[in-house]
């Protein structure tokens, strides 16, 4: 049906109030505050220009955090997409109880990020954990928890994120794979195409727009990595698992350096905005 201007306003108003009040306005207020010395507890506010940004960007800790989150996103997102796609590919044809398998596979995603942190804290540790149990079964000596090891801590947090999110990627990709008409697979099979080329030529072109959207969500989540790491390592050991989100939280709510907290938070938003611009460009080109 044809919508008038008035219809548009009526239909968008409730959403605009909710998102405007709780998302956009806080974000913009935060943005303007980053150019000042504003903090909730001070009364005198001075304009300082780019000073806060310069401070944060010159803080070696923030540099570490950016490096960690870059590794986190560059490793976790492709792994999640790859694993998620592989499992969805296994599930694409009807088998007995497919929707049950799909529901069961969603369980890791249902564990909240913070609960996942608590859970893996115990699963990685010696006496109670699954890791040392399996090692013991194989006759190997017990290993120390990777979350206390500078070299392994980041890898451990990535592994937990992949464990939690890959099943969700399967959940999101499966409708796209199932929707591919059966003839397309049959044609490819009749032409003698191997399974690898069936994936590349039949499956991937169909789910590419979907993969792009899922990739956008995953990248945003990775760049904001916070909950699991807060509970598991608190950013440590040292700065091995520090992320920009943890850095902002710490500055704003723990050390009461509100301007640094708000400023580093805006740098995260800036990073996501860049990825978002790339996403909009890429998906626009695809649709022609």
């Amino acid at each position: 049906m044809r919508l008038t201007h008035r219809d548009h306003i009526l239909l968008f108003a409730p959403l605009a109030i909710l998102i405007g009040g709780w998302l956009i306005i806080p974000a913009l207020v935060g943005l303007s505050a980053t150019l000042t010395t504003y903090s909730p507890l001070t009364t005198a506010v001075a304009f300082v220009g780019w000073q806060n940004y310069s401070d944060v960007l010159h803080d070696p800790q923030f540099g570490e955090a950016v490096r960690n989150v870059a590794i986190f996103a560059l490793v976790a997102v492709p792994l999640e997409l790859g694993l998620g796609f592989a499992i969805a590919y296994l599930l694409r044809r009807p088998i007995r109880g497919r929707s049950w398998w799909r529901g069961l596979l969603l369980l890791p995603w249902l564990v909240s990020p913070i609960a996942a942190g608590v859970m893996w804290h115990y699963l990685f540790s010696g006496a109670t954990g699954i890791v040392s149990f399996v090692l013991g079964w194989l006759g190997l000596p017990e290993a120390a928890s990777p979350i206390g090891d500078v070299r392994l801590a980041l890898a451990a947090t990535i592994a937990i994120e992949v464990w939690r999110m890959a099943p969700f990627v399967t959940f999101l990709l499966l409708p796209g794979l199932v929707a591919i008409p059966e003839e397309r697979w049959e044609q490819a099979t009749l032409a003698g195409t191997s399974w690898f080329w069936r994936i590349v030529n039949v499956a991937l072109p169909e789910v590419a727009p979907l993969m792009l959207s899922v990739g956008m969500l995953l990248t945003g989540l990775s760049l904001g990595a916070f909950d699991t790491i807060l509970i598991l390592t608190g950013g440590g050991p040292g700065t091995a698992t520090l992320t920009p989100a943890l850095y902002s939280y710490d500055r704003a709510f723990v050390t009461n350096d509100w301007p640094s907290g708000a400023t580093s938070a805006w740098l995260i938003a800036g990073g996501v905005a860049l990825v978002g611009a790339a996403y909009i460009r890429l998906s626009g080109r695809r649709s022609g």
């Binding site: 709780w22 806080p26 974000a27 956008m216 907290g261 708000a262 938070a265 996501v272 990825v275």
Partner: peptide, 21 residues
């Protein structure tokens, strides 16, 4: 597509001023 980007925006990006407001 902007809504998807907004959905991807980490909460930390606006949580600090949100708490203040």
């Amino acid at each position: 597509q902007g809504f998807l980007v907004l959905a991807s925006l980490p909460v930390m990006a606006y949580a600090i001023p949100l708490a203040d407001l």
